[in-house]
Amino acid sequence: MKITNLLTVTIGAFFLSVATNAQKKTFQKEEFKQWAQTPPMGWNSWDCYGPTVEEHEVKANADYMAKELKKFGWEYIVVDIRWFVENDKAGGYNQTDPRYVMDQYGRYLPAVNRFPSAKDGQGFKPLADYIHKKGLKFGIHIMRGIPKKAVEDKLPIKGANGITADQVYSTALQCEWLRDNYTVVADKPGAQEYYDSIFELYAQWGVDFIKIDDLSRPYHEGEINLIRNAIDKCGRKIVLSTSPGETPIEAAPHVTTHANMWRMVDDVWDTWPHITHLMDVAQKWYPHIAPEHGQIAI
């Protein structure tokens, strides 16, 4: 049994903060540490649906959680990987001829054939509203980097004074198992603006939690800095979970000051070597246990 994604969304409760576009709140440097202080509980679409989950399935799980599990502390509903692709198939990613959905600034949007309420440019806001009305919180998954399609089409980066996607990317350290994105070079002009632009969008949608893949192994400190800055400026408390493991213990001083949650190891399966390895790794992380560290142990 694969248990990775169920627990990757077990994050602590925090108070919801909504800022208007006209007056966004900028969070203090250490304020984000208050957003996930206890081991949280939630549901993630990956284990049952892979990259193919649809809106009605997300709502059905939210309905069940609100009715049966909310009273026990379960609160997060998270749409996992590739919600912006129209033609993924069960059992794997379509990397042959994927049909991406994105806006004029190279920001992925929900595929309307899977999430009908996203029509007319509404994005995930209607779905997030549905979940919030049940007293739950809403999260999404993204991959590190900038879409290859945005680079190929030289799409402008919002707020970057004419800088386009092809001016901030690198093919170095591109994800090996999913080739949708390129690396964002952290010190390039426009790099921060790109991450600012996507988190501005997520804040408008009402996102409360984000899981970002291909970020921890190898440890992409530059992009994590961009992400932390973008969240702090977006005006909404969005819990940051980095994935996948094994996060290097040498990165502990950085990850504990830039993320709410992080992976200690790779996927854990029901085999004894995986469990004993987790025990060994957990000992290294023991000195870094703290109320504001929602470490992910799987």
Results as ranks from 00 to 15, higher is better:
221 E>Y: 10
103 D>Y: 01
280 D>N: 11
282 A>F: 04
179 R>N: 02
285 W>M: 01
212 I>F: 04
199 F>M: 03
48 C>W: 04
239 V>A: 04
222 G>W: 15
253 P>A: 07
85 V>E: 02
17 S>M: 05
195 Y>S: 03
1 M>N: 05
277 H>G: 05
82 R>C: 15
147 P>H: 03
201 L>E: 10
277 H>F: 12
207 V>T: 14
78 V>E: 04
8 T>R: 14
106 G>T: 01
107 R>C: 13
26 T>W: 01
207 V>L: 12
238 I>W: 03
115 F>S: 10
20 T>Q: 02
42 G>N: 09
43 W>E: 02
82 R>S: 14
65 M>E: 08
94 N>F: 06
49 Y>R: 07
202 Y>H: 08
247 T>V: 05
212 I>A: 01
102 M>W: 02
105 Y>E: 04
236 R>P: 08
242 T>A: 08
50 G>D: 10
252 A>F: 14
193 E>G: 06
26 T>L: 03
28 Q>M: 12
193 E>K: 10
171 T>I: 14
211 K>V: 09
231 I>W: 03
160 A>M: 07
287 P>V: 01
12 G>N: 04
89 K>E: 02
243 S>H: 05
79 V>P: 03
172 A>P: 00
6 L>Q: 13
283 Q>Y: 07
86 E>H: 10
259 A>N: 15
143 M>P: 00
60 A>W: 04
271 T>P: 00
260 N>Y: 06
45 S>F: 02
57 E>D: 07
249 I>P: 00
287 P>A: 01
72 F>G: 08
246 E>F: 11
137 K>N: 06
202 Y>F: 15
49 Y>W: 13
79 V>Y: 04
74 W>H: 13
98 P>M: 02
244 P>N: 11
25 K>Y: 04
100 Y>E: 05
212 I>M: 09
104 Q>L: 09
178 L>E: 14
101 V>Q: 07
89 K>S: 03
295 Q>A: 04
105 Y>N: 14
66 A>K: 13
259 A>M: 14
243 S>R: 00
262 W>T: 13
157 I>S: 08
209 F>V: 07
9 V>M: 09
56 H>V: 12
288 H>V: 00
14 F>P: 02
237 K>S: 04
215 L>T: 15
56 H>S: 11
129 D>E: 14
170 S>L: 08
35 W>N: 10
159 G>E: 05
182 Y>Q: 10
67 K>V: 02
169 Y>T: 05
272 W>S: 06
84 F>E: 02
155 L>R: 15
136 L>Y: 06
66 A>Q: 14
191 A>G: 08
206 G>E: 08
8 T>E: 12
94 N>Q: 07
252 A>K: 15
232 D>P: 02
8 T>K: 14
161 N>E: 08
5 N>C: 11
164 T>G: 03
51 P>R: 06
278 L>C: 10
224 I>C: 03
104 Q>W: 04
51 P>W: 09
70 K>I: 06
119 K>S: 08
155 L>W: 00
131 I>V: 15
72 F>R: 12
136 L>D: 08
194 Y>A: 00
291 P>F: 12
138 F>D: 11
